[in-house]
Design a protein around this nucleic acid. Structure first.
Lengths: 256, 256
DNA sequence: ACCTCTCGTCTCGCGTGGCGGAACCGTTGT
DNA sequence: ACAACGGTTCCGCCACGCGAGACGAGAGGT
């Protein structure tokens, strides 16, 4: 076998066809694909027909050429939830924690709340507890506001209508101030939270983008107010954005 | 062979594994997948290893279970551009044109402008010309505003800073009014344009969503002001939204 | 309208590559 | 320590996929 030991040849070829179809934008013909991969055109035709049966590729009725199928898109949607975001993000979060000496984390939206999927504690031994796997409301934490700022406005309205719990006197619970805050987050590219969930607890967060520019997660830095002072926030915001961008790149996304 | 005549067995099985991995959210084990598809576990293992080689699936280092890989996501991004949006949308646009007796169209964002990818003229023979393949600025047409409303705010700021051309006295060229208009579009789920590009030309538009809820295109209805009167707009907006939702469903998206 | 060039699919016999039984590890749980 | 379980690897047999070539359908040139 041309490739390493234990690959199934036909499957490997089929996968190569799939990838080649992805690279050639638009459609591609059997003959062209076969030539590009060094296959016999009858082989390519047979493999493509098999993929088509499962909807991974589709064929243009008029030209007979092939293109990627809809189910690829549906698969990708599943893949994103499944993807090992945690494993990819951890090294970057560790770097960020070392750099800032604070606790860093990564969160995603899960059933209308912020789910922390990874956390790295800073060297300062102020116990903060492990939030991995736990959920908090979106409106009162920095990462939550980053993710909320990427939702459709209709979603935000729905959440507000359902009621926002007030945790401290600084928690934003009214619609108008919240919309203004989210607009500010979008404009600046990062969010802050100054004692909005718990007095004395501050945070900064920045968005992680996928290949299409959609926000899929948020990187945050948080710590006690006496260390994470307002004057440090601009600097921390830059670092959070850099880390978020690095993670974006590693999952195949645009850093934008 | 169990399936129809001319499929490549191993490829078909590999494709089935891929789909099965998509259906089981999160990861899935070799044994479980093999049982679900009626395969021998050694076969499943071999096929999965082959898919992994191409990055279509990845394997968790700790548990040994498999999940969908990153390249699926990258493929899907290509697939969306490749996808036969036009072919899928056309029948729906035709229905809409028959229903409303107006001209209907479908547009996407292409290099920061609105690209019309499909158009169906209504039965009323007021010549409007074929816009297929042509581009217009985003800020002054209904579909453009729908698509703009889905952009990151930073993008909108960049466009405004670059300058918005004023075509009529109704064209929105200032930042603040534009942001308010886009917020209105998001809230209502549709956009209008009343003589903002050309006096006497009105339009309504609604967003088409993909599987992840991201806005990828806009359906519009447009016509001369004397027919497309303000009082007809609510009714047309509903129809535009229904058509957009129908297209969303047909490309595997959520109607939301 | 003709021929010709190209492209995708189908047929078919050959021989190799994939299948599945079973053995082999590494982990987990009791 | 043992058993149970899940993923990988080995190996021999035979079916299954491969590739040469034929076939039919368009497209385009003269």
């Amino acid at each position: 076998m041309a490739l390493d030991g234990n690959a199934v040849r036909s499957v490997d070829r089929a996968a190569a066809l799939l990838l080649a179809l992805g690279e050639s934008q638009g459609e591609a013909g059997v003959t062209e694909l076969a030539r590009r991969l060094g296959l016999h055109k009858s082989t390519a035709s047979r493999l493509l027909a098999t993929l088509q049966r499962r909807g991974l590729v589709e064929q243009d009725d008029e030209t007979g050429k092939y293109r990627l199928g809809i189910v690829v898109i549906r698969l990708a949607e599943r893949a994103e939830r499944t993807l090992d975001l945690r494993g990819i993000a951890l090294p970057e979060l560790e770097r960020l924690a070392r750099l800032t000496h604070e606790t860093t984390g990564l969160g995603v939206v899960e059933s209308e709340a912020l789910l922390t999927v990874a956390q790295v504690d800073g060297p300062n031994l102020i116990a903060v507890g492990d939030w991995t796997g736990r959920s908090t409301p979106l409106h009162c934490v920095a990462s939550g506001k980053v993710l909320m700022a990427a939702l459709a406005e209709r979603e935000v309205l729905r959440l507000v209508r359902r009621g926002l719990v007030s945790y401290t006197e600084r928690t934003i619970v009214q619609l108008e101030p919240l919309l203004e805050e989210l607009a500010r987050v979008r404009r600046r590219g990062y969010a802050t939270a100054i004692g909005e969930y718990e007095m004395g607890l501050n945070a900064v967060a920045a968005p992680v983008h996928d290949a299409r520019g959609t926000v899929i997660a948020a990187v945050d830095i948080w710590g006690p107010a006496f260390r994470l002072t307002p004057r440090r926030i601009p600097e921390l915001a830059v670092q959070a954005r850099e880390t978020a961008a690095a993670i974006s790149v590693r999952i195949g996304g645009a850093a934008a």
